[in-house]
């Protein structure tokens, strides 16, 4: 069934969109990531204009992370105080990111910026995760399931001023690192159309030293607001949020996330992380390939500048 999207102004198959939403939903349920980093490139691929794909994906992430955070609130695994500090950084970052996005759009380089951001961040995160999870797999094969938990390293984070107590996380640290982490994720949300969970989660564990059980819920909590703010900014400055596209992706996404969560419980954590790392590296490799190899068509038609 073909459906005409009012803002993207293209006609696409509705079942394809629901299916894509479902597929990415399964992955996001299995791995606990928003899935924006997969969905946005897939939307480019099926012919949605990049500006619309980025803005609409932000809107979709609001829904999936809201759904997720409700479950975490019930389990009391959200550090609201830490989330609020991250959020303040995140909102500033989102506004900054959109300003960069629009400036490069004027110069005709927004596509390059989006792709480069994907290659750099997916490459770094994918490689780190791959190395870490392969090492964990080997360790568990050698020593068995019982092993000492990794010691948290906080060194420089401890020495900064403006310290604050975060009870849920059991931390007493400076507010500067969480503000900076939030800022970075906010910039990424606006430029890449992603929630930024794939950056935020490792940063919370390894930089801030938060306990793993509150990381996902707290990350989701602040992502709702940052992507919500990003959606509003894109809607009011560029008119590029396609609500019909968002609804179709959502339908598949919420169902897929549930299926994915069940699948995820049958696999071991390290195996899941190796799979996710491989997936991230494949997406990164494809985008890098497109940047490095001479394209078949050197010209492209962009939207007009107003």
């Amino acid at each position: 069934m073909q459906i005409y999207l009012p803002i993207a102004e293209v006609s696409v198959n509705a079942f394809l969109l629901v299916g894509l939403g479902g597929l990415v939903g399964i992955l996001s349920g299995m791995f606990g990531v928003g899935g924006g980093f997969l969905m946005t490139p897939l939307l480019f691929f099926i012919g949605i204009p990049p500006a619309v794909a980025v803005a609409t994906e932000a809107n979709q992430i609001v829904a999936s992370s809201f759904s997720g955070v409700l479950a975490h609130l019930r389990r009391r695994t959200v550090d609201l105080r830490m989330g609020t500090v991250l959020l303040i950084g995140g909102l500033v970052g989102a506004a900054l990111g959109l300003a960069i996005f629009n400036a490069l759009r004027e110069m005709g380089q927004v596509d390059l910026l989006v792709r480069l951001s994907y290659v750099v961040f997916l490459g770094i995160v994918g490689a780190l995760m791959f190395v870490e999870s392969v090492r964990a797999l080997r360790r568990s094969a050698r020593v068995g399931p019982t092993q000492p938990p990794r010691r948290r390293q906080r060194g420089w984070v401890q020495s900064l001023p403006f310290r604050m107590r975060f009870r849920t996380s059991g931390l007493y640290i400076s507010v500067i690192p969480p503000l900076l982490v939030g800022l970075l994720v906010g910039v990424l949300a606006a430029i890449m159309g992603v929630g930024g969970g794939f950056i935020m989660v490792p940063a919370m564990i390894y930089v801030l030293g938060m306990p793993t059980k509150v990381v996902i819920g707290t990350s989701l909590f602040q992502i709702i607001f940052v992507t919500g703010f990003t959606t509003l900014l894109h809607a009011t400055t560029n008119q590029t949020v396609d609500v019909m596209l968002a609804v179709l992706l959502l339908l598949g996404g919420v169902v897929g996330a549930q299926v994915g969560t069940r699948l995820g419980t049958r696999l071991r954590g390290e195996q899941l992380r190796v799979l996710l790392a491989a997936l991230v590296l494949v997406v990164c490799g494809k985008l890098a390939y497109d940047l490095l190899v001479q394209p078949a068509e050197l010209y492209e038609i962009g939207e007009a500048e107003h």
């Binding site: 809107n59 979709q60 609001v62 829904a63 999936s64 992370s65 809201f66 759904s67 997720g68 409700l70 479950a71 919500g228 959606t231 509003l232 894109h234 809607a235 009011t236 400055t237 008119q239 949020v241 609500v243 968002a246 609804v247 959502l250 919420v254 996330a257 549930q258």
Partner: peptide
Amino acid sequence: RPLVYGLMSLAIAIAAGWGAA
């Protein structure tokens, strides 16, 4: 009315997330 449209998009997303949960 881009602001109204943006808020509507957010409301739909929140409602869908809530309903799904």
